[in-house]
Amino acid sequence: MAKDLTLEQIHKCYATDSGKRIIIDDISLHVPKGSFVTILGSNGSGKSTLMRLITGQEEPTSGSILLDGQNIPRLGHVGLVSQELNLFPWRTALENVAFGLEMQDIPSQERLKLAKVYLEAFGLGAFLNQYPSQLSGGMRQKVAISRTLVTAPDIILMDEPFSALDFQTRTGLQCFLLQLWAKLKETIVFVTHEVEEAVFLSDFIVVISTIPAKIKKIIPVSIPRPRSRNSPDFAKVKAEVFTVYGATSCLGNQELKEALDFLQRHKAKNV
């Protein structure tokens, strides 16, 4: 059942050959129960590391992670859908979705029935007995989401789940996810590096800096749903996010200009 999530002064460092490396530097955050929060940060900023801490795969170097204010075991209670999906290739769609229930010792009949209900609700009723290798990217994504949802986790984490998909599939799944969330009232922490996706989906956006990850700003999004990507409100929030998140793009332009100048000079010489 949905719970709220509290991160208190989370630090994470790894020991590497070149010494101690700080990946996450003092992140504190409260995610209210039933809310949809997006963590926005560029590639390599430490987002996936933060997810591994929340699922309980790893422990923070210091700080605490609380569910409903309590420090309780998280493995098996926090769901994660990642970009790689990690579906079990030897299990059919139905058996994949039933895996988490199997770990909870729910009898075979019941777990298959429940898994079937989810897949059918996701429009995959005709693909229950297909293996992941026989499904399209979008379908696999839905199987992965149902595999997590069916276990009714306290928190649902989604780590760039749609990044590998084409535009049509991605926007379709975004709408789908929002409808689902509206019904289930789950607490969702969604990780992305795309501003538009963040603005479209979330109640509030947590913008984090590049490594080590720190919270730069928390931006609430109060546009009513369903949101239109073309509305002036949407553009306004996007612009606001960009002022925090997109600050490095000028530097890129400068480098590009230098490269183009160089090419031009090089061409001129060769003529």
């Binding site: 795969q57 990642s82 790689e84 990690n86 079990f88 895996f99 770990m103 997590t148 276990t151």
Partner: peptide, 18 residues
């Protein structure tokens, strides 16, 4: 064995035997 598969099983609550 892909580490990702082991991780996702752990996240779904698998114990060592499972």
């Amino acid at each position: 064995v892909p580490k990702g598969l082991v991780d996702s099983a752990k996240i779904l609550g698998a114990k060592p035997k499972e």
